[in-house]
């Protein structure tokens, strides 16, 4: 598509043409056709810093769209003018003949940058469905122009995995939240497996009111947002307990948590890449953590489009 002539209506026409082509291919398929179903439950805007990152993001978005069918709009900067192209992500659910497709648009932001892109993203959103903005690679506090897209979104997803200053990143997230934006952080999402194992202990084995103190240890050179979140989560869940966060000689991330109770300590500890051990008070077992990739994290976040009370409590704790 010509760059200077980029118009939302011509992109939408290209999308329509793409659907006609897909349907036509299916009709002329040599095997028995079961049709193409168009699936869409939201607009997912993925903002990337480089074309390489966008290529990677498109693959992740492709996996995510199978669980959360969406119109994916992948935006990244380019050296030339604006450009846009459409694509489709199709799959056949296990055991079914019918092909399901979701649509996508890749937009190369020209010299006008993301501010210019924000203008023509407005008509490209699927009307009346939620818009989620995934700021891929953004450090939150240094947005690289992504902030122009914030007002379009019902939810903004960041990933603070690589940030060096966790306090600054959390401050930025709190600020956005205070402005009324619904924010999420994939580095919080990474903790779900860990948190679920911990929460499960309190379903039946331990009464939360018994806990006198909790000691959390983390690996790595500096305190990550992940450690901050974990500490805030425990502190806000056990207001009566003293909670300490301490470094440990271990790989980056949460290493262990020990709860002090009148009947003895209970410890959950990392004992392998995907394994936690639970010991103390007569308990002794190991449990697996699900392997996490970016697509799985996004799938979890996209399934929460309303308020996420626990995360908001932790962010502001």
């Amino acid at each position: 598509m010509s760059t200077t002539a980029i118009r939302p209506e011509s992109i939408l026409r290209d999308l329509q043409k793409q659907w006609e082509d897909l349907a036509s291919q299916e009709i002329h398929s040599p095997t028995e056709s079961a049709g193409v179903l168009r699936a869409c439950a939201m607009t997912l805007v993925v903002a990337c810093r480089t074309p390489e990152e966008a290529l990677d993001a498109r693959q992740v978005a492709g996996q995510v769209m199978r669980v959360h069918p969406s119109r994916a709009i992948i935006v990244h900067p380019g050296s030339g003018d604006f450009d846009a192209r459409v694509f489709a992500e199709c799959w056949k659910p296990f055991g079914r003949r019918q092909q399901i497709c979701s649509e996508g648009i890749e937009i190369i932001a020209g010299q006008g940058g993301f501010a210019e892109v924000a203008r023509f993203l407005v008509p490209l959103r699927v009307p009346d469905l939620p818009v989620v903005l995934w700021c891929r690679g953004s450090s939150v506090s240094e947005t690289g122009g992504f902030h122009h897209l914030y007002p379009l979104a019902d939810k903004i997803i960041f990933d603070t995995h690589d940030v060096s200053d966790s306090d600054a990143a959390l401050r930025s997230l709190r600020r956005l939240h205070a402005y009324g934006m619904r924010v999420a952080d994939l580095h919080w999402t990474r903790l779900s497996g860990w948190r679920e194992v911990l929460a499960h202990l309190f379903d039946s084995n331990i009464n939360a009111k018994e806990i006198r103190s909790a000691r959390i240890t983390y690996g790595g050179d500096s305190v990550t947002t992940c450690a901050r979140y974990f500490e805030a989560w425990i502190r806000s869940s056990l207001p009566q307990a003293r909670v300490a966060l301490e470094p440990e000689y271990a790989s980056r991330g949460i290493y262990s948590v020990t709860f002090d109770t009148p009947k003895g300590d209970v410890t959950i500890q990392h004992v392998g890449e995907h394994t936690l051990s639970v010991t103390g008070r007569g308990l002794e077992y190991r449990t697996g953590l699900p392997s996490i990739n970016e697509a799985a994290l996004m799938q979890e976040e996209l399934s929460i489009l309303g308020a996420d009370g626990v995360y908001e409590r932790v962010l502001n704790a």
């Binding site: 779900s192 679920e196 911990l198 929460a199 039946s204 939360a208």
Partner: peptide, 16 residues
């Protein structure tokens, strides 16, 4: 007692 760590939006319901 209610479990203060529960997060029904994210944790799968589990069988006891």
């Amino acid at each position: 007692t209610a479990n203060p760590f529960s997060d029904p939006l994210r944790f799968e319901r589990r069988v006891p």
